[in-house]
């Protein structure tokens, strides 16, 4: 099923490029959804059903809807062909160069096709899905980080409420 990988990888990249290239914010948002769908399909091909489905449920199904909602409500106009400030250009060049260096370093270090990643031992009992495994890990080994993340999200929510209330006065 390698050709499926190529189809969905192409879809993901196509969507990703679309986000950057498009001038119209709504088209960009839809390209991003396309990219998420391709990514979800890639996860599912790796047998990570839960991750793939959550990718659609949370990102494509909820977060992007809110993005689109805001874009449409504010009626953001198309981006004009304006010159970017030097600082923005410089920062983006630094980010791109360091990312490419990182990728090259990782590839040369591991040797293309030579080294294999160590296989992850499946902790599956009979008839257990990956949902069971993830759930058990989250609520036993990683219960503390999960709580921390939850509190962090709560702080963000409270912060948004405080900020928007201040503007009303």
């Amino acid at each position: 099923m390698t050709f499926l990988f190529f189809i969905f990888a192409a879809l993901t990249l196509f969507g990703g490029i679309g986000v950057v290239v498009n001038r119209n914010p709504v088209t960009s948002a839809f390209s991003m959804i396309l990219s998420f769908l391709g990514l979800a399909a890639l996860f599912i091909q790796l047998n990570a059903y839960l991750v793939g489905v959550l990718q659609i449920l949370v990102y494509a199904g909820a977060i992007m809807v809110l993005f689109l909602f805001i874009i449409m409500l504010l009626d953001i106009p198309k981006a004009e062909n304006k010159r970017f400030p030097v600082f923005t250009l410089g920062a983006s060049v630094v980010v791109v160069v360091s990312f490419v260096t990182l990728v090259i370093a990782v590839i040369t270090k591991s040797g293309v096709g030579a080294a294999k990643l160590p296989a992850i031992e499946a902790q599956k009992g009979p008839g257990q899905s990956d949902v069971h495994q993830i759930g058990e890990l989250l609520f036993s080994t990683y219960w503390f980080p999960v709580q921390i993340v939850a509190v962090l999200l709560l702080v963000a929510t409270v912060g948004v409420v405080v900020l928007s209330k201040r503007e009303l006065k």
Partner: peptide
């Protein structure tokens, strides 16, 4: 025969909103 049946239904059904939007 997926192991994430109801989640799959909710995930895909949540995409219907885009058609309307």
């Amino acid at each position: 025969d997926l192991d994430v049946g109801p989640l799959f239904v909710f995930a895909v059904a949540s995409l219907t909103v885009y058609g309307i939007v």
